[in-house]
């Protein structure tokens, strides 16, 4: 049985640094959650029968996630822009391919969160008129993201209509 989608992967990989970014995010979340449970474990004696195992389980799952998912994501996350469309793939357990035609694009932005700024990464956000249509391309080099945004803005201006 053929099981994969007959779409080719987009051309560009994201930055290698993105693996570090995903690892840090995952690690931070694990530390915060397990830390909260551990605090409850220390301060509230009566809850120990269940906070102890819960904290251990969260820590184990979080570490497994931190170890496996970032590189898995790096293998999957790809993107490209052409004169007709923006094409991106992402995800790990649930894979996600998105195509937004240039003629339907309303805004093109780049955003950088605090961790991204630290690591020198940038996110390209392409929105269409739909409430469910924004395409996020994470883990780009800031220069690439800005260049892509400028190029898209230029092409978009020459293409009339946004299907609203």
């Amino acid at each position: 049985m053929q099981t994969s989608i007959s779409l080719r992967p987009p051309r560009h990989r994201v930055q290698r640094r993105a693996v570090l970014w995903w690892t840090l995010r995952s690690l931070l979340l694990t530390v915060v959650l397990a830390g909260a449970l551990a605090t409850v474990y220390l301060l509230w004696d009566a809850s120990r029968p269940w906070t102890g195992p819960a904290a251990l389980a969260v820590a184990a799952l979080g570490l497994a996630h931190t170890a496996a998912v970032p590189s898995w994501r790096y293998a999957v996350h790809r993107w490209e822009t052409s004169a007709e469309a923006v094409y991106a793939s992402s995800g790990w357990f649930v894979r996600d391919w998105r195509v937004a035609p240039i003629s339907r694009i309303q805004t093109v932005d780049t955003t950088r969160g605090p961790l991204e700024q630290l690591l020198g990464l940038s996110t390209l956000v392409v929105t269409t008129a739909s409430s469910s249509g924004a395409v996020y391309i994470r883990g780009l080099a800031p220069a690439d993201a800005t260049a892509a945004a400028d190029r898209l803005a230029e092409i978009t201006q020459d293409t009339p209509g946004d299907a609203t």
């Binding site: 989608i5 649930v94 996600d96 391919w97 035609p101 269409t128 008129a129 739909s130 249509g133 299907a163």
Partner: peptide, 28 residues
């Protein structure tokens, strides 16, 4: 105004995929 193909690992094993069409109208 855009398409999105989604496939979880389970869907991949079963040979399935979900395609969403985004639009400015109705439910989006």
């Amino acid at each position: 105004s855009g398409v999105r193909v989604r496939q979880s690992l389970f869907q991949r094993r079963l040979g399935l995929a979900t395609v969403s069409l985004s639009t400015a109208a109705g439910l989006g």
